[in-house]
Amino acid sequence: MSLKGFQFSAVEAAIKKPGRLDLALIFSQDPAQVAAVFTTNKVQAAPVVISRQRAANGSARALIVNSGNANACTGEQGMTDALECGRRVSELLGLPDDELLIASTGVIGQALPMDRFRKAIQPLVDGVAVGTLEDVADAIMTTDTFPKLERRRGEAGGVGYAIEGVAKGAGMIQPNMATMLSFLVTDAAVDPDFLKSAFTEAVDGSFNAITVDGDTSTNDTALIMANGAAGNPVIKAGTPEGASFLALLHDVLLSLAKQIVKDGEGATKFVEIRVKGAESHADAKKAALSVANSLLVKTAFFGQDANWGRIIAAVGYAGIPMDPDRVEIRFDDVVMARHGIFAGGDAETAGTEVLKQKEFTVTIDLHIGAGEAAVYTSDLSYDYVRINADYRT
């Protein structure tokens, strides 16, 4: 079963440099419901400002996105340029301007090279019947080392539907929505209110549960378009079909989120930080993020140093209720500390072996409540510094 009613295109506009796809289009042949979340950074790129306003209407037919230039901190000219790009695409597609969303990613503080955009827009629209979602995934990459794409299939009322999505991101990652972008499309018919609530819930457990370097971008955008082309009965909240749709949506988003962490700039480790036994879910997540963002913890992961003391310290300054004498810390199944006390030399040896793996889980049990949360992060390597020191060159 293939996705129905969506078309894709991507072209090379040489926005930052030639030799790669960097301008993409997603187009729904039918009217589509839309739900979106955006960066909470007070410094917001022109496309974020525009798309936030348009997505509030609850419907959209198309999205244009470029990489290589964030169009952030570019003043009134940046807003004018973004609107012109959108208007030219809308005219060629025969759409009202407010049915087209805009996204950008790349270098902050540089004006869009509008002459290149103008030349590329006609080929972009002309190619919409032959492009693929894979092309879009390629076109939105910046420092990413691989394209990020995920697909799931579901059924409602005996009718099959698809949920497909792409994402980009490797550095400047702590979305807090919501440099990270993610675009999902589904041909399922979904109640608009349920679509918004389901997307927000799924984002909270995926994109809002990852961190590479603790930075929240000026351009973070995640959205979903649902056009109903599959012809299924409308999926609503509080139904088995709604629960299934939410589960599939969460699967797609969590897979994309994990791909972003695994592609973290210079990353050599993928680490799940799981906090249990907190007073609330919010406290558990706050503690997990505190550990995941600690530079001392992340460098210890890179160095394969089983330094559990840095972890308990990061929990201690997270600003949540805790009793150090109750804390237990495990690396996978290896108990490193119990009742806040080191488990001994054998634990150090076994814990070091765990940290030699490319993927592992750190579990912190506070033993004071039922709150639990997971956050996904990477280590911090020499290459992270090199990549970001050279980013603009």
Rank of each mutant, 00 (worst) to 15 (best):
A14M: 07
D283V: 00
G171P: 13
G68S: 13
K285I: 00
S244Q: 09
W308R: 07
K358G: 13
I312E: 15
R116A: 08
T74F: 11
E279A: 11
N307H: 15
L289I: 02
T179C: 03
H339V: 00
P31L: 08
I235P: 09
L112G: 04
L256R: 03
T186H: 10
E91V: 08
G351S: 12
L25S: 04
V375N: 04
T377E: 05
M141C: 11
D22T: 10
A188D: 02
E91M: 09
A120R: 00
N232A: 06
N66C: 12
T349H: 00
A189G: 02
G154Q: 03
S28I: 06
V385Q: 01
E99F: 05
N208K: 12
A267M: 04
R310H: 14
P47M: 15
G238A: 08
N176R: 14
G228P: 01
A347H: 01
F360P: 15
V37W: 05
F302W: 03
A318T: 04
A337I: 05
A198Y: 01
I235A: 07
R326E: 14
V37C: 15
Q53N: 03
A139V: 08
K269Y: 07
L181A: 07
P324F: 07
G78F: 14
S381I: 12
C85H: 00
V89E: 15
Y376T: 02
I173G: 13
V11M: 04
R310D: 13
I387R: 05
V159Q: 03
K285F: 00
D251R: 03
S104W: 13
L124T: 10
D193R: 14
K276I: 04
L223R: 00
L133H: 08
I50K: 02
K298Q: 10
Q174K: 15
S197Q: 14
S255T: 14
D305W: 00
G264W: 07
E328N: 09
W308K: 08
C85N: 11
L254W: 00
V261Q: 00
D115T: 14
L133Y: 11
V315R: 01
M177N: 14
A287C: 05
F183D: 13
G75N: 11
S182R: 00
T132A: 04
P123D: 05
G345Q: 13
L133Q: 07
A314Q: 05
A103N: 01
E99T: 11
I273Y: 06
K285Q: 14
A306H: 09
R330W: 02
T186E: 04
Y384E: 01
L254Y: 01
V43G: 04
A313R: 02
G231Q: 02
P147I: 01
F8A: 04
I15D: 06
Q304C: 11
D383M: 07
D204P: 05
M141E: 09
T74D: 11
A178S: 15
T200W: 08
I387G: 06
T39D: 12
